[in-house]
Amino acid sequence: MSSFKAHSVLPGFNLALGFTLLYLSLIVLIPLSALFVNTASIGLGGFWDVVTGDRVLASLKVTFTASFAAAVANAFFGLVVAWVLVRYRFPGKRIIDALVDLPFALPTAVAGIVLATLYAPNGWLGQYFAELGIKAAYTPLGIVIALTFIGLPFVVRTVQPVLEDVEAEVEEAAASLGAGRWDVFRRVIFPAVAPALLTGFSLAFARAIGEYGSVIFIAGNMPFISEITPLLIVAKLEQYDYAGATAIALAMLLISFILMLTINAIQWWASRREAR
């Protein structure tokens, strides 16, 4: 025991860690391992055949493209929102600040039906799109809209605290050296918030890839055009194609892991850069 854990006078370590490991294993680790074990039963070749199927590849393309587009939109607008919330004062700011977290709190199904209604050709916003000849709901664009909603808080909430920490003195120093406002932003402020922006972007991207509830109502769900990968898993399940569903799920899980590692690497790199 002594080499595994440093001595402490505080009690309860064995109980707390024991319960933690038991609960973690029962709820998370054992169920997740089912994905690996069940996929192993169809073999690597079988796995590869499933995940490189035309429909799967098309759904992956839709999912990744839409997620990326939504994350890019959120990176840009999220930065503007964070900037405005940190730097300016205007009436109702505190309520708006609190409202930014709405996508975290609003159930995805509710988001899904309301966005589908708003962007339907006869909806509040959809009618204007229709006038321009753009179909928003029931197309890949609809998916981007839903994923933008879902990912909205990530960039704002990662950039906001960093922007608050940028010292006025640094900006003043740059200004006193003759830099214009845009130069100050581009050369001083932006590099400071860039790692947080990248983290927020990755988080929004990762969340969007797995998203299901808000998308299916607005997507139209046409195979090869607007069918996202999570929906394909559900479709396979409903056809009792457990092996197919499991293989796709495992592929998604591996992609999520890679994204998670990337995010951690970004944060590690950013904290190291800061420490220098």
Binding site: T20, L21, L24, V28, L29, I30, P31, L32, A34, L35, N38, T108, A206, I209, G210, E211, Y212, G213, P230, L231, I233, V234, L237, Y242, A245, T246, A249, M252, L253, S256, F257, L259, M260
Partner: peptide, 24 residues
């Protein structure tokens, strides 16, 4: 490693979260 494991469910698509219990 334990902290990473605790974070795992956040990295899993909700659909996959349901699927693993069906598999069990």
């Amino acid at each position: 490693l334990l902290i990473t494991f605790i974070d795992l469910p956040f990295a899993v698509s909700p659909v996959v979260s349901g699927l693993i219990y069906v598999l069990l």
